[in-house]
């Protein structure tokens, strides 16, 4: 089992003919994901040829992909100015799981988009996220498939390459993953830590979870309290940004310490208070997971 992505995932790529969209469509299809359609307004009726010679039909609207190809999941690679609109188009078309990779969507636009998506009962992952991968089954987004392997650990993170680092170390140590989920580095995101932890908690195959957070906001702290109350499987945590100065945005729009709130120190303390083992270095994540799993 897994979360968010399984064998029933039928993916539509919004922005399939763009540079990033076409590159990652190839990667996702080669990994075995069922990419059933693409959307580029004005290019409906054409097809996208993958490197492996598969022809993916292109449509003008997401609604058509739902009707014609049974799409139930979408991934968005369109530029920031159009990405919020693309998310809402997906939600309106009845897509259940929407993954927004795009970085740089104005936050004020996301406040409206988030409310819109929620009203329609869809799940949004991101924006500004690497997406999710269920090893051996499928991937939606940009997480490199070769660093993952199937197994019992769920991974949830606000970061991209730091997640790859942790996942790669798990894989090298022979510890596989149920699903790896990047929730995104923006202040407003569709799926937060608690949403993802809840999903892992409900997944019978996930035996432990790695939670990788960073400075800014209170999502990690709330998640830690939720873990203590609700989770039966062990959680190992890591927080990036112990050396980040207050008031400065560290790459991700959401990675900023406001006043004295949202520091790495505060988050690690709340983790420990709520029974989450804290890794001091990325390499310790693997060791702590091994201990939790009794390896």
């Amino acid at each position: 089992m897994s979360i968010f992505i399984d064998r029933s995932t039928r993916l539509v790529v919004q922005g399939i003919t763009g540079r990033d969209g076409s590159f990652h469509t190839n990667q996702m299809a080669a990994y075995g994901t069922q990419v059933v359609a693409g959307v580029t307004p004005g290019k409906g009726g054409q097809t996208f040829e993958t490197d492996e010679g598969e022809a993916i039909p292109i449509f003008n609207t997401v609604e058509e992909t739902v009707q014609e190809e049974g799409a139930n999941t979408s991934v968005i690679y369109v530029p920031p100015a159009f990405a919020a609109g693309a998310i809402m188009e997906s939600a309106d078309a009845g897509i259940q799981f929407i993954v927004a990779i795009t970085e740089g969507i104005p936050v004020i636009d996301m406040t409206r988009t988030y409310a819109f998506v929620k009203d329609r009962g869809a799940r949004l992952l991101g924006p500004n996220c690497p997406g999710a991968i269920t090893p051996g089954v499928g991937k939606v987004g940009i997480i490199p498939g070769q660093i993952t392997t199937a197994g019992p650990v769920g991974v949830v993170s606000r970061s991209g390459t730091l997640t790859y680092e942790a996942v790669n170390q798990l894989t090298e140590a022979g510890i596989g993953q149920t699903t790896c989920v990047g929730i995104g580095g923006d202040p407003i995101i569709g799926t937060n830590f608690i949403d993802t932890l809840q999903a892992f908690s409900d997944d019978p195959d996930t035996e432990a979870v790695v939670m990788i957070g960073e400075i800014g906001g209170t999502d990690e702290q709330e998640a830690a309290r939720w873990v203590k109350e609700n989770m039966e499987i062990p959680v190992v945590g890591f927080i990036a940004g112990q050396t980040a100065p207050p008031g400065r945005q560290m790459g991700h729009a959401g990675a900023i310490i406001s006043g004295s709130a949202g520091t790495a120190e505060e988050k690690m303390k709340v983790f420990e208070e709520n029974g989450i083992a804290v890794a001091r270095r990325p390499v310790d994540i693997r060791t702590l997971i091994q201990e939790e799993l009794g390896h």
Binding site: L162, G185, A240, G241, Q242, T243, M250, A255, R280, P282
Partner: peptide
């Protein structure tokens, strides 16, 4: 990557 960059700085300090 921003997360890895922060983690690298933290490791320098470590």
């Amino acid at each position: 990557g921003a997360g890895l960059a922060m983690a690298t700085m933290d490791l320098v300090k470590y």
